[in-house]
Design a protein around this nucleic acid. Structure first.
Lengths: 190, 190
DNA sequence: CCGGGCATGTAAAAGGTTACATGATTTA
DNA sequence: TAAATCATGTAACCTTTTACATGCCCGG
């Protein structure tokens, strides 16, 4: 396998609870309600992360308690209330720190890096090159590793007696190839 | 988004706890210990699913209680014991049923279908065509949807003011394209 | 006036990770 | 003989899903 490398600092490294950063990122773009945040996960962002309202509402509460968010009340019609959340300077700090922090690539099919990218709007943002190159390095190693596996386990192509295994390894290789190509493309565009 | 469609039967549909089926599938290939199962998730299968030993040992216990597995003791050296688990006919039934059952594609980055494939060894297995075609239909629809999104949101290619969003949508499209191509390739090979 | 969508929450259960705990065996 | 790996398990915690619960608003 591939060694994780890079650490994000010698002290503690709380990490995790990625949902909070996604919420912060979405609200940083513009103030919104819990309901609107929930819907975001049905759109593009849902391709890479999803969350239910039952997770979002409590998280909003927690983030407000920690003073990363504030809210104002709005009213629709006669009495339907909604809370529109805005990010605080402390919240923006936390968000920025999360984006800047080197991304540890998880093994579990979740891709934290892509989420960070989503919150970078400006094509000329100086963080882009570093972030993309860091990922490129990781995925280059991973692709090499997988290609080695494939040619080692199936030197003659699809083995009829181990077809499923062959198929998923091929899939893993082409999936990584796509990631690699995409990162290179992105780097070319900046 | 895309409607899930297809149901696996009108009665109940327990589903979930996919880990149990993976364990069953791995043990069906050959009897093994909890420790060996744990290591499987560091290899190819780990590209698509992972689990820690703290999840595996209790699951083995449960599966044995339900009589889907049995174990025999082995001894290494003087006193190091290990439990080698084998699948029972009931376990094989459960495994077969899981593989046969139409796969509902999850939104959360987990890919149950690939795992099912992994446990089909024979290239001429009659289940393959159906399974691959079912997935092909799903991913064709999804690809179409994503391409529409991309051309709708970014008709002129990379928007310098929304670059991150553009990048991840492009990534989603090429990721789906890879899936689509892979499925077609697989179908050609059977 | 009714159905679907808007809007917000809580509770319980399941799934998954990290930490705790222990001890044996092999390899350098 | 010390470190790495083999080997198995439990406990605590965190994350995520499903279900419960309530009520308003708008369009047909």
């Amino acid at each position: 396998m591939i060694s994780p490398k890079r650490q994000g600092g010698s002290f503690k490294m709380a990490q995790k609870n990625i949902l909070q950063f996604i919420i912060l990122g979405l609200i940083n773009d513009h103030p919104q309600t819990g309901y609107e945040l929930t819907k975001s996960f049905d759109n593009d962002i849902g391709e890479f992360w999803s969350a239910k309202h039952s997770q979002i509402y409590p998280q909003l509460k927690t983030l407000e308690e920690k003073q990363y968010l504030t809210h104002t009340m709005e009213v629709s019609g006669e009495k339907l209330e909604r809370k529109r959340y805005s990010i605080t300077p402390a919240g923006q700090h936390l968000l920025t720190a999360w984006i800047a922090e080197p991304t540890i690539n998880q093994t579990n099919g979740k891709d934290e890096f892509v989420l960070k990218l989503y919150f970078i709007h400006d094509q000329t943002d100086p963080r882009l090159t570093t972030m993309l190159e860091e990922q490129l390095q990781y995925h280059t190693e991973k692709l090499t590793h997988l290609k080695n596996q494939l040619s080692k386990k199936f030197p003659d192509g699809g083995d009829p007696a181990n077809f499923g295994h062959y198929l998923i390894l091929s899939h893993a290789v082409s999936r990584e190839t796509e990631y690699y190509d995409w990162l290179n493309d992105a780097l070319k565009q900046i």
